[in-house]
C-alpha cells in the first residue's frame, strides 16, 4: 500500500532541536520531551501511554506467534515506502506467515545523532499509518541515540506477537509432493525500487516498493482452507531463496514454471540493465504458499479478490524428484537448477 506521508495533515510538532541530539536518548528531560511530542501521538494507545517499562496485556488462550526483525535499509526513504512502514509490515508479515493474526508490536530505535527531526517524524507517521492498516498496536518501545558514525541514520528493530487460529499448522517443512506453489503477485519490486533509488545509479523509474502487511490476505486464505502446508514471504534473497528453503526443509523437489511468475515490465527492464536475476531480489509485500491440489483453486480465487493478491498465480509444484532442489524448465524444455544467490545482488557489466 502506498501512502504519501508528506501530504498527511500532521505537521512536525514544535521541538527544541531540528536534529536528534545525544541527550534525546539519555533518559533525561530531552528524552521525555521527544517521546511525548513525537512518539506518543503516533502510536497513541492505552498500554503505551502508561509509559511503563513493559506492556502488560491479556491474551486469549491460544498459540502465539512471535517474531523479531531489524531494519537497516539504505536509503531510508525509497519510492513506495520508507524504513518506518517497512519495519511494521515486515514484522507483521513474519508473524502472519504462520497463519497468525498479528496483534502487538514493539519498536526499538537506534538513531545517529544529528538525524533530522523532520525525517524521524516522517518515519513515525508512516509507521502509524502502516500499523493502522495492518491492525497492529505498538505497545512498547525504546529509543537510543548513538554518536555520529556509530550507525547509519536510523535503525529500527520491531518485534511482533500474534495469535494462531485453532487448527492452523503452517511451516516451511509441511510441503507434500503434489502441492501447488502459489505466489501472491509480482516479484522484485522492493529490491529494485531500493537499488534504483541509490544516488550513484541515476535511474528514473516508476518502480515502487511493494511494502505491505499481508495479514489481511492471509486471513482470507485461511478462511478458505486451513490446509495451507507452507507459507513464507520472499524477502532478502528473493523468491529463489524461499523456494530453496521450502525444498530443503520439506525434503521435496520444486518444479518452477518461470513463465508464470508475474513481474512488471519496469522491474524486468531495470533487472536487465543491471544484470540482476529478479528471482534473487527482495520483496516486502508478497507471499509464497504451498497448497494441496484440491484446494488450490479456492485459495487462488480468494487471493485474487484481495487487493494484495490480484496477480496471484501458480508458479510451480512440489515433486518427489530432485529432493531439496528447485528446478526450472528452460525454453528448450530441459531442466536447470534454480539456486540461492550467494551474496548481495550487485550491478554487473559482464
Amino acid at each position: 500500500m502506498i501512502v504519501d506521508t508528506s501530504t498527511l495533515s500532521c505537521p512536525l510538532p514544535i521541538m527544541d532541536h531540528d536534529t536528534v541530539q545525544l541527550a534525546h536518548g539519555s533518559g533525561g528531560s530531552l528524552s521525555a520531551s521527544l517521546i511525548e511530542k513525537l512518539f506518543l501521538p503516533r502510536f497513541d494507545n492505552a498500554m503505551l501511554n502508561q509509559l511503563e517499562d513493559q506492556a502488560v496485556m491479556e491474551l486469549p488462550a491460544c498459540r502465539l506467534a512471535f517474531s523479531t526483525d531489524s531494519f537497516v535499509v539504505d536509503p531510508i526513504f525509497f519510492p513506495g515506502g520508507d524504513i518506518g512502514d517497512l519495519a511494521i509490515n515486515g514484522t507483521a508479515n513474519d508473524v502472519c506467515m504462520s497463519g497468525a493474526v498479528p496483534l502487538y508490536v514493539s519498536a526499538a530505535f537506534i538513531i545517529e545523532e544529528g538525524f533530522a527531526m523532520e525525517s524521524l517524524h516522517r518515519i513515525l507517521l508512516s509507521m502509524e499509518q502502516a500499523g493502522k492498516q495492518a491492525g497492529v498496536t505498538v505497545v512498547t518501545g525504546d529509543t537510543k541515540v548513538v554518536n555520529k558514525g556509530s550507525c547509519d541514520k536510523i535503525f529500527i528493530t520491531t518485534t511482533g506477537l500474534g495469535s494462531v487460529p485453532d487448527g492452523v499448522m503452517i511451516s516451511a517443512g509441511g510441503i507434500q509432493p503434489g502441492d501447488k506453489i502459489i505466489l501472491s503477485g509480482t516479484i522484485a519490486d522492493h529490491g529494485m525500487a531500493v537499488m534504483t533509488s541509490r544516488e550513484n545509479l541515476s535511474f528514473q523509474t516508476r518502480i515502487q516498493s511493494d511494502t505491505a502487511a499481508l495479514n489481511g490476505l492471509v486471513e482470507k486464505m485461511i478462511k478458505t482452507t486451513t490446509e495451507i502446508h507452507a507459507m513464507r514471504d520472499p524477502t532478502r534473497g528473493g523468491l529463489a531463496t524461499t523456494l530453496n528453503e521450502f525444498a530443503s526443509t520439506s525434503n521435496v523437489g520444486i518444479k518452477l514454471i518461470e513463465g508464470n511468475i508475474p513481474i512488471s515490465p519496469d522491474v524486468k527492464g531495470a533487472c536487465e540493465i543491471l544484470g540482476i536475476d529478479p528471482l534473487n531480489v527482495a520483496n516486502e509485500g508478497k507471499l509464497v504458499a504451498a497448497v494441496p491440489p484440491d484446494k488450490v483453486d479456492a485459495v487462488l480465487d480468494a487471493m485474487r479478490k484481495h487487493p494484495l493478491g490480484r496477480q496471484a498465480a501458480i508458479i510451480g509444484e512440489a515433486v518427489t524428484d530432485h529432493k531439496g532442489m528447485v528446478a526450472g524448465e528452460t525454453l528448450l524444455g530441459v531442466s536447470r537448477i534454480v539456486d540461492m544467490p550467494v551474496g548481495e545482488q550487485l550491478p554487473r557489466i559482464c
Partner: peptide, 11 residues
C-alpha cells in the same frame, strides 16, 4: 541521452 528500457529510464 535518456534511454528507456521498457519503462525504466537511465542516462
Amino acid at each position: 541521452g535518456r534511454i528507456d528500457y521498457a519503462g525504466t529510464v537511465n542516462n
